[in-house]
Amino acid sequence: MTTAVPPAKPPGRLARWWDSDIAFSFRSSPVTVMATLLALLLVLAAVAAPLIAPYDPFDPASLDLSDGFSKPMEPNEITGKVFWLGSDGQGRDIFSAILYGSRISLLVGAASVLFSLVIGVGLGLVAGYVGGRTEALIMRVADIQLSFPAILVALLVFGVARGLIPPALQERATLFVLVAAIGLSNWAQYARTVRGSTLVEKNKVYVDAARLIGLKAWPVMLKHVLPNVAGPVLVIATINLALAVIEEATLSFLGVGMPPTQPSLGTLIRFGQQYLFSGEWWILLFPSLVLVLLALSINLFGDWLRDALNPKLR
């Protein structure tokens, strides 16, 4: 663009954003745009599930056994009802079940990412800022945690929680237990990253200045250091959201996740697997497809974000 004619009025906030480096790199990558749109669509559909879903899969009164095993897009042989993506053995609409299921999957995923983010960033800040023994201890624990596979840690946390929570509360507590189990198996990565960048930031002049005006350690960490180490955290959080959704699905698939009364995508796939041999492919295929698309689109977005925020690649 030429600089000869200055714009009559400064461009609006939106226009400025549209011209920024990040927006440009976003626009020029069609794969990222597609992935983002897909992810947004899936998230929106999950959030608005009660508005969109044609049936309520949790209302036993609306279920009719003669609706069972309807094929996708074909009228049922007995009742003549059409289920877009078919129905399962109890006459539950697969489309509605997927909407509600991805709602639970995303809820558990997002909450556990938030949980591990808070723990990891907190411990990382403390480790980097305080240093000494505290740092050594925190990073040692993080090392041990990182060397154990996340799914194993999550299974252990889940088992321990089962042993400690009274049976009457267990079904209601499952969601929180899952969030804790997945969250506790993924915090170490944040702690490592944040500690690394905190070590760099700690020696900069603005931190000295903040300390000189008499601020205590916590305000310095939270108000001054934290905003400057947040970039990489955002990238890890995005990619971890996809991982957390898959981890939740895996746990539910193994039968140690969401109960059948509140199925997530993994629980739906677990059910669908039973029909693999009898030819009712739609009960298994559609939830699996949604899970893969969800994970893939979030992953692609995260990959792009990592490259876009990496100053070395600019």
Binding site: F148, P149, I151, G159, R162, L254, V256
Partner: peptide
């Protein structure tokens, strides 16, 4: 190898493989 062991838990459950991973999942349940 840690990953192999972790995903052996999943693989053994999918294929009803009578190994340690399936034993562990049952123990957790």
């Amino acid at each position: 190898l840690g990953g192999v062991i972790a995903f052996a838990i999943v693989t053994e459950t999918v294929f009803q493989w009578p190994g340690l991973g399936a034993l562990f999942v049952n123990a957790v349940q």
